[in-house]
Design a protein around this nucleic acid. Structure first.
Lengths: 154, 154
DNA sequence: CTCGGTGCAAAGCTTTTGCATCCGC
DNA sequence: GCGGATGCAAAAGCTTTGCACCGAG
């Protein structure tokens, strides 16, 4: 759909502007990684992103993936999450409304939700404790009820 | 203060009951680790806990610390947090009201706060998405305003 | 006495770093 | 052409695992 293509063009412009402002180079690797991320629907970890790119015969090193992800997080095109304990999860962040996550501790499924009341809490807390809150992370952990939840074997 | 001692006794009873129920052994190491955790005021990571115990001439291995922490998390006497990206942070969890955290991205200071409205959100979301929410983690990231915040050198 | 728990060190995994080469500017 | 960026592999950090020995039940 054209919407998606327009979005990806806009995202490229934002990244280009960011790189220019930071006096960094517009390398093909950086844009290939950005493109791959925005072609994905969901959360992903570094390794699956890396492997996807290998599969498409676009050879980038893990080091470059990590490096580029840092830049994309810095310019708010990508969000970093810490759902489990081990590796970081990432997610595209532009053009999608802010949301939080519900994690099933049995099947590890991640479901998104959105509740405007979080903003109120953020405002209250920031004011009360004299903090300027930039962003937040709200995770609910629990179990799917009557859903296709299959407990993962340990 | 006596309160604290009573609390620690109660915590030991809970852990003992948990171990019994799970048919696990009540080893001195396990209780030494529990005791060390409940003598601490704040959040801590595995390594600082390990070092504290070495300093007090109580020799436990890192493996035992990890193992015991897993048990303590399982029986809800300890909470595991993922504030940054690297290692897990832990915190005693019994006898202290549930709270969430505000993290300064400049100086890494962690401040606690408590807002009952989170419970409402949890209820709504759980009902709406048919999840049984067991626990949550709400993190606000931002900067201290007019406080003793010193940007950490990179 | 049994077998779960511990300590130690080695292995595992994710992420970072060093260095030679490459290429955007 | 210069200096930043990449790729590769090696190193670093946190956590887990394997194995022999120890000690709680």
């Amino acid at each position: 759909m054209t919407y998606s293509i327009e979005l990806r063009e806009e995202v490229k412009k934002i990244f280009t502007a960011f790189l220019k402002q930071k006096k960094l180079r517009k390398t093909p690797e950086r844009f290939a990684i950005l493109d791959e991320i925005y072609s994905r629907k969901d959360h992903f970890d570094v390794d699956s992103l890396y492997i996807s790119m290998q599969d498409k015969n676009y050879r980038v090193s893990r080091a470059t993936v990590y490096n580029t992800l840092d830049l994309l997080v810095e310019c708010d095109l990508v969000t970093r999450h810490q759902f489990g304990q081990s590796q970081s999860q990432y997610e595209k962040a532009f053009g999608f409304r802010q949301h939080d996550h519900l994690i099933c501790t049995d099947c590890n499924k991640v479901v998104e939700f959105c509740d405007p009341r979080i903003q109120n809490i953020q405002n209250t807390v920031g004011e009360l404790l004299e903090f300027e809150v930039i962003h937040h992370s709200l995770l609910f952990y629990g179990n799917c009820i009557k859903k296709d939840c299959e407990k993962k074997a340990k």
